[in-house]
């Protein structure tokens, strides 16, 4: 019978985790910055934060974050398929996070696609994509906090 144990992350895995968390924080912040709220609510008035009200800059950083996130996700998925799944299994909370992250990524891809020249979506779809992208991110933030509180990680070591 299979039982699950928490395990200590290796040094490389710790770095990956922090890169992932940091990327999501930057993506979240610059994503919210796409709404005209940072100037209205004084965020851009904080010394050193004037850049947060520059829509082109936050958009640029958001895209850079997406590039890094895509590379990171591909690295982790392939790494898990090639070697990780023999030793580890995904937790229930990991499946929830994967589903939400998938929602964020897919809606984000559509949003990037919409911004290309000569690409025109029908109106309702753009609105849906925008709201869904924001919605997935909001739910992800709350679930990540919840999983942090209950100390539920992404994987557990398999033991037989």
């Amino acid at each position: 019978m299979k039982s699950h144990n928490r395990y200590e992350l290796s040094g490389g895995q710790r770095i990956l985790r922090w890169l992932y968390v940091l990327t999501l924080i930057v993506m979240g912040f610059t994503g919210f910055g796409q709404m005209p709220i940072f100037k209205r609510y004084y965020i851009a008035d904080i010394p050193g934060m004037a850049w947060a009200a520059n829509f082109f800059l936050t958009h640029y950083i958001h895209y850079l974050g997406a590039i890094f996130l895509f590379a990171l996700i591909a690295y982790v998925i392939l790494g898990y398929i090639l070697s990780g799944r023999k030793q580890f299994s995904l937790t229930a909370s990991a499946y929830v996070r994967i589903a939400l992250l998938g929602g964020i990524v897919v809606t984000g891809i559509f949003r990037v696609f919409k911004n290309l020249p000569d690409v025109v979506f029908f109106p309702g779809f753009t609105l849906f994509i925008d709201i869904a992208h924001l919605g997935f991110m909001m739910v992800y933030i709350f679930s990540a906090l919840f999983f942090l509180i209950i100390k539920s990680g992404w994987v557990v070591r398999k033991s037989y």
């Binding site: 958009h59 640029y60 895209y63 850079l64 997406a66 590039i67 890094f68 895509f70 590379a71 990171l72 996700i73 591909a74 690295y75 982790v76 392939l78 891809i109 990037v112 696609f113 911004n115 290309l116 020249p117």
Partner: peptide, 15 residues
């Protein structure tokens, strides 16, 4: 944005 969108296609391959 258009240039970075192209980089997004390459990013998963790099990963």
């Amino acid at each position: 944005a258009d240039n970075l969108a192209k980089a997004m296609v390459i990013a998963p391959l790099a990963g």
